[in-house]
């Protein structure tokens, strides 16, 4: 007899590190040198610091929120955790598997939703999901069944599931992106601004789905956002990221208390907490943190 489909699997056991938490991030830093380097060019090059000495853990079944303005380093950090960017220093472990050294194992346990729902636009939603399920080793019938179940729950009707992605709205595409991530039953899910740019209804559909999954499946999720209400509604713990650094971390109540100074905690808005702790508003775009000019011969 079939029971409810699993969208997020129970935490796996790493035989080498039993009981390892879903995510450990220790001292991760990353800087980039933008542009191309021509061997004959004598022009000094800019170096931009994206992430600085970031450390945090996520426990089993936790939804951890990372809040920061545009340019604060959220997406770079998510890319590092997804094995898409290699950190300059520090370590990332997913259920005890090192994201660099044990990449193939760690990648089997994670999936990601990015703010930009990138798909093969000439293919249908179902064809795209079939491909992404297949590259995670899922049989085609299971991909089709599970994709339809998830998209139904997200409120995307069957005709849209058969439509080419280029014919769908941004909100519909983002629902397919959410389905792509849940399709493979990740043990750790990285949600990088999953509701940015969505209309209110699509945003609510995605948030409800994430909340249901957390409630029903004890999901472990890292959510980045600059939507305070979303973070408060979904996350158990929240960290504020500014200029690539974590400047504060705790439950929403703990963060409010940290700036209360005798005021009633209930009356403090999270936007104000963010501003007090980071010195900027969450809607501001951060300037790139230029750390040095790199001499081409040095």
């Amino acid at each position: 007899m079939r029971t409810a489909p699993v969208y997020l699997l129970p935490s796996p056991e790493n035989p080498d590190h039993p009981g390892a938490p879903p995510l450990i991030v220790r001292g991760v830093s990353k800087s980039f040198t933008p542009g191309m380097h021509l061997p004959w060019s004598k022009k000094p090059r800019r170096r931009v610091r994206a992430v600085q000495d970031v450390s945090f853990d996520i426990g089993r079944g936790e939804i951890f929120g990372l809040i920061g303005a545009n340019g604060s380093g959220k997406s770079t950090l998510i890319r590092i955790l997804s094995s898409l960017v290699i950190a300059d220093t520090g370590t990332v472990k997913v259920f005890g598997y090192d994201i660099e050294r044990d990449s193939i194992q760690a990648r089997q346990l994670i999936n990601r939703v990015s703010a930009d729902p990138s798909f093969f636009r000439q293919m249908t939603a179902s064809e795209n999901l079939l491909f992404y399920g297949r590259v995670y080793g899922m049989p085609p019938d299971l991909v089709k069944q599970r994709a339809a179940e998830i998209l139904d729950r997200l409120g995307l009707d069957r005709s849209h599931q058969r439509a080419m992605v280029k014919e769908l709205s941004r909100g519909q595409q983002q629902k397919i992106a959410v389905a792509r991530a849940f399709l493979t039953s990740p043990a750790l899910l990285l949600l990088d601004e999953p509701t940015t740019g969505l209309d209110p209804r699509s945003k609510r559909d995605v948030q409800t789905f994430v909340r249901d999954i957390q409630r029903d499946h004890d999901a472990t999720i890292l959510l980045t956002t600059h939507d305070m209400d979303e973070a408060e509604a979904l996350c158990g713990r929240i960290a504020f990221l500014a200029a690539g650094r974590i400047v504060a971390e705790g439950t929403s109540l703990e963060l409010r208390r940290s700036v209360a100074n005798g005021r009633p905690v209930d009356g403090i808005d999270m936007e104000d907490v963010f501003m007090e702790l980071t010195g900027r508003t969450v809607d501001d775009d951060e300037e790139e943190d230029e750390i040095e000019e790199v001499a081409v011969d040095g």
């Binding site: 699997l9 044990d102 297949r134 299971l142 039953s185």
Partner: peptide, 26 residues
Amino acid sequence: MADTAGTTTSRFAPPARRFSTRRQMT
């Protein structure tokens, strides 16, 4: 990795370190 039965399970095998040739062909 993926739960191929599509049902709730309390046990979960650790992810594979290497894939078989058949799995790689798939």
